[in-house]
Design a protein around this nucleic acid. Structure first.
Length: 377
RNA sequence: GGGCAGAUACCGAAGCGGUUAAACGGGGCAGACUGUAAAUCUGCUAGGGUAAUCCUUACGGAGGUUCGAAUCCUUCUCUGCCCA
């Protein structure tokens, strides 16, 4: 199959849909959750565990991998897949989010982003073109264009200007992508990223102009940056009204288990988020009964498994009391178990969502699942 | 038996006349985390009170000096080190 996306089924009752991403590193059923592996590792667990969890695709980050070890080094290893020993698919983010989160260390111009390394303060420059080149060296299956993730709140004028900048960068990214080719014998695809801040008209306009550039897939960026969750849902809803049906839709950086279900219902196919991995390292578990703050003293004597409803070694072999002890004692194993469990939960949730879409039961199941998760919050 | 040093909140440890219910660590108790500068960050941690620039009790014990003492003096108790 030459095309990346194959639509399998639409819900009919909502905009939820099931499909496949055809990459040369596997066929990925969608909706899909992509664990974040910024620096060439999904923190605290091994690639073997990701396989066991049936993660089909993970993220890498252009900014981080460029700074360390550098894409030229990774090129010497035959690309990121070989470098990190991962046969599944990889999507690399562009560094656009770092332009946003490391705001005080960079300067934006029409040409690109000048920035200082957060590691050693050294000066660097990213252009839309160089970011494509780096991702060619990395060899990710899906590469993201460089964009400016507009901070929240931003006024309409700033957002509009930023839109022009990001769209210009998007065009240049596409051009560079077309001028270059994959280096390692597997296909690479390129996604655009829709911005527009919190303004409906700008979101719409951005998407319309992005569609013209004709990327392999379309992302929605700049959401979940501090705005009220309902606004995030509304803008996602609006976005999927305009995004083409024959291409994958990726909501960047989202979100909580509830966010995932709400946005699947609004027609999103792909998600990534640091929550399951980061919160795991910070002692918070996501379960079918809601969130658990593991350090709480109420779990000292809990003999309950983390979540026995999951088919995951970490989730049903250790008691909450034991895992709490590991956290309180700052044992490395705590991070590993919690990370594995949280990822198992997120991946399982989205897989179930997919099955329910195929069974025409998604909407009812979604409602029940959210209620259950809220129950013990 | 003699000499010296010390005793501060759950623990360690600052402070050495007023701005001290007492710095800072640790521990404890909560909270946050959404395209990862995060095994991180924030708050609380004598009792009472929703809370306060409110009340009570507090820096080994007992007395004293002073307008005012964890801080100065006397004495007692205990701890460590050194000399016999």
């Amino acid at each position: 199959m030459n095309k990346l996306y194959e639509l399998e089924k639409e819900s009919g009752k909502s905009k939820a849909r099931a499909g496949f991403l055809h990459t040369d590193h596997g066929i990925i059923p969608t909706p899909v959750f992509m664990p974040v592996g910024t620096a060439g590792t999904v923190k605290a667990i091994m690639q073997r565990d990701l396989v066991e969890l049936d993660a089909k695709i993970i993220l890498g980050n252009t900014y981080h991998l460029y700074l360390r070890p550098n894409d030229k080094v990774i090129n010497q290893f035959g690309g990121l897949h070989k470098f990190i020993s991962w046969d599944g698919a990889i999507l690399t983010d562009s560094g656009g989010y770092q332009i946003f989160s490391l705001q005080d260390m960079r300067k934006l111009t029409r040409e690109g982003a000048a920035f200082k390394s957060h590691i050693d303060g050294s000066k660097h420059f990213f252009s839309p073109e160089s970011v494509v080149d780096i991702q060619r060296n990395l060899g990710s299956d899906i590469l993201m264009v460089l964009d400016e993730c507009v901070p929240y709140p931003s006024d309409e004028n700033y957002t509009a200007k930023s839109m022009e900048l990001s769209l210009d960068w998007a065009k240049r990214s596409k051009e560079r992508f077309c001028e270059t080719s994959d280096l390692y014998g597997h296909r690479q695809f390129q996604f655009g990223i829709g911005q527009g801040g919190m303004y409906e008209n700008q979101r719409k306009q951005y998407i319309e102009r992005m569609i013209e550039i004709d990327f392999d897939g379309n992302a929605i960026g700049g959401l979940s940056v501090g705005e009220p969750v309902e606004l995030m849902y509304d803008l996602t809803d609006l976005s999927t009204d305009y995004l083409p049906k024959n291409k994958p839709r990726y909501l960047m950086g989202v979100g909580t288990p509830e966010n995932l279900l709400e946005c699947i219902e609004r027609g999103i196919d792909m998600f990534d988020c640091v929550l399951p991995t980061r919160n795991a390292r910070n002692g918070q578990l996501f379960t079918s009964r809601g969130k658990i703050n593991l350090r709480n003293s109420q779990y000292i004597l809990s003999n309950q498994p983390i979540d026995s409803s999951l088919d995951c070694y970490a989730s049903n072999n250790f008691s909450l009391g034991y895992l709490r002890h590991l956290f309180i004692s700052k044992e490395i194993l705590a991070l590993q178990i919690a990370t594995m469990h949280n990822l198992a939960f997120f991946l399982d949730l989205v897989r179930k969502a997919r099955l329910h879409i195929l069974n025409d039961t998604f909407e009812v199941w979604k409602k029940e699942t959210i209620e259950k998760m809220r129950g013990e919050d």
